[in-house]
Design a protein around this nucleic acid. Structure first.
Lengths: 150, 150
DNA sequence: ATTGAAATTGAGATTCATTCTCAGGCATAT
DNA sequence: ATATGCCTGAGAATGAATCTCAATTTCAAT
């Protein structure tokens, strides 16, 4: 379980200072976990609590949190980089099921790529250390919506 | 097998005009297949053959070729969108093995995701229609380079 | 608690990939 | 060939992300 105290400790352990802005950014990321916020969305949420924060500070801090492995980026090819908390227990990123109709994003925590990655090791002698996957299709709700229409 | 004539036909069939610029862009993409060119790299290659072309024309045409399903985008999270020929025989995109050391990109044409996509269908009732995957790690050459060093 | 050094911040300027605008040019059907 | 309307080139515009820099804040050592 990720808590803000865990993250604060990581930051101080790495020699970074724990500023009010950082705390607010981290609290906001935790509060909106699984929402895949863009930098600008995060900025506006943080502004509600800490109105004098600057956009550059948000960018600087998400970059730092990425470097520390606390958050990860998600690129939905819509022109924005999105941020989400990294899984704590696994070294690999989780998978994303992206609905092409309603744009919902479903997280899959299970790894599921072991056999494929073994195949890559055998066939190409490529040693996978991380992966980033997106599966596009129709979610449960949108399949039912389409049925209702048709 | 993709040929420029095939692509020209697709373009005319869709009601688009076959301009010199389009032909040159397509020829260049075919010539540099598997190179994952950025828009700017493509622009400079095309300029060698057709010096008066504008960058906007390159952007307009890669967008059109994407819409037609002739090329696909690849995002390596380095600030550039890259373009590659779409596979002809499969509906799904191919996989990319990305070496974190030398930044080489290896294409994997096999699909290999059937069982995982079936699992998503069962567990989440999510019907996958396409996927986009990146596997980060060390390629054959770079593993050997590391051994030599150590 | 105070201090000092270094990290951090806010604001605005800047960068740079990509898109937009628009007048002129060219492909294609007739 | 010619007319229609799509296409192009050039440069301006957009906008996410980064950079700059003076002022502020954190934190370890007093």
């Amino acid at each position: 379980m990720i808590t803000n105290e865990n993250i604060y400790k990581s930051i101080k352990d790495k020699g970074y200072k724990l500023t009010k802005q950082r705390q607010t950014i981290i609290e906001t990321l935790l509060k909106h976990r699984k929402e895949h916020l863009t930098a600008d969305e995060l900025y506006h949420h943080v502004k509600d609590i800490h109105p004098e924060i600057g956009l550059a500070t948000v960018y600087r801090n998400v970059k730092m949190l990425c470097d520390l492995g606390i958050i990860e980026t998600l690129n939905l090819n819509d022109g924005f980089v999105r941020y989400e908390l990294a899984p704590t227990t696994k070294k690999h990123r989780h998978h994303h099921l992206i609905c092409t109709n309603c744009h919902r994003v479903i997280e899959v925590e299970e790894d599921l790529m072991d056999s494929i990655e073994q195949l890559f090791a055998k066939k190409y002698n490529f040693k996978v250390s991380d992966h980033e996957t997106k599966f596009y299709g129709l979610c449960d709700q949108c399949q039912q919506g389409n049925k209702a229409k048709g």
